[in-house]
């Protein structure tokens, strides 16, 4: 069961969300970014933000352990409640994929879990793909991961309600039953088993263009790999164990004790990223890790299009 909001009511609805927590939405300046909404900011409804939604759940750097006088304890998360409006289904499905890893029954990540509980995610369905490189239409996105999702219709917004947390925010609105359509894209990735192409020469074509800048992994809504560093003051024996976002494009990523680097060549690292997204994760979790947001193509310095390569060259 969903809800309906008249179009002219959208602006006031968004502002009313501020009562319930820190309101975050996409805002366009020199480019579109998720940010805390301030007076004068206009919510961007057309572009997908530069940095994906994951930044509110997996920050670039955070302590996983507090060290005081040589003793360790888990850090307490002190963050206000957040409401994020205007996330796209690709980013939201990205969260659902991260949930599989961080909320796995055996190894629950407490900070991630608290952030998930503490945050209300309100999605915005794409009628037209925000970028020509969007290919989510071929990635099997599902209606999951959000609390509410807005779908624009001719006269009003249909609001899909998934959770109690979301339902509270729209309980005053009129109810309706409607099966909203998932986004469609012109660009599509052909579903292929990539294992037979591991040694294909076409990896080299794309790899020659790769400058190892790591933007594709940093901006990916599902890339979660991290590194751990200790920042401890030797005088006071106090400090933090920090988790920082890492990238498989870095040669240091596969360095082990003793100094050996497993993927020393750029080709191995480039191929690993694509294979992990489209094949390794699928083998394990029965679902592609890629949600087709297209950021890794949009923001690649060399505009490497692995979708095109896989579709056209891997035969």
């Amino acid at each position: 069961m969903g809800k309906v909001l008249e179009k002219e009511g959208l602006h006031n609805f968004i502002l009313s969300l501020q009562k319930h927590g820190l309101l975050i939405a996409p805002v366009t300046t020199d480019m579109t970014r998720f940010k805390v909404l301030e007076a004068g900011d206009k919510v961007e409804l057309n572009n997908n933000p530069f940095f994906p939604l994951k930044k509110y759940f997996l920050p670039n750097e955070e302590p996983v352990l507090k060290i005081k006088n040589g003793l360790t304890k888990e850090p307490k998360l002190k963050e206000p409640k957040k409401i994020i409006f205007g996330a796209r289904l690709c980013d939201i499905n990205g969260l659902a994929i991260l949930d599989k890893l961080y909320l796995d029954q055996r190894f629950v990540d407490e900070t991630y879990k608290k952030r998930r509980e503490n945050t209300t995610v309100i999605g915005l369905n794409c009628l037209n793909p925000p970028s020509e490189n969007c290919f989510c239409g071929s990635m099997g996105l599902q209606k999951e991961g959000y609390d509410l999702l807005f779908h624009e219709r001719e006269l009003d917004y249909y609001i899909d309600v998934l959770t109690k947390k979301g339902a509270k925010l729209v309980k005053h609105l009129r109810s309706e039953e409607f099966d909203f359509p998932l986004p469609k894209t012109d660009k599509k990735l052909d579903p292929k088993d990539l294992w037979p192409f591991m040694a294909d020469k076409f990896w080299e074509k794309d790899n020659d263009l790769c400058v190892s800048c790591q933007r594709c992994t940093i901006l990916c809504p599902t890339c979660f790999c991290f590194d751990l560093h200790d920042d401890v003051n030797p005088a006071t024996k106090s400090g933090d164990r920090l988790r920082t976002i890492d990238s498989c494009h870095s040669p240091d990523f596969t360095q082990v004790a003793g100094g050996h680097v497993f993927r020393a060549k750029r080709l191995q690292r480039y191929r690993h990223r694509v294979m992990h997204k489209l094949q390794f994760f699928k083998d394990k979790f029965d679902r592609s890790m890629c949600t087709g947001c297209g950021r890794c193509i949009d923001y690649c310095h060399s505009k490497i299009d692995f979708v095109k390569t896989i579709n056209e060259d891997f035969k």
Binding site: F51, C213, R215, L219
Partner: peptide
């Protein structure tokens, strides 16, 4: 030991 692009992208600076 990472390129400048890493911190630049994390800071959400327009390329």
């Amino acid at each position: 030991n990472e390129p400048v692009c890493v911190e630049c992208t994390k800071r959400e600076i327009k390329c």
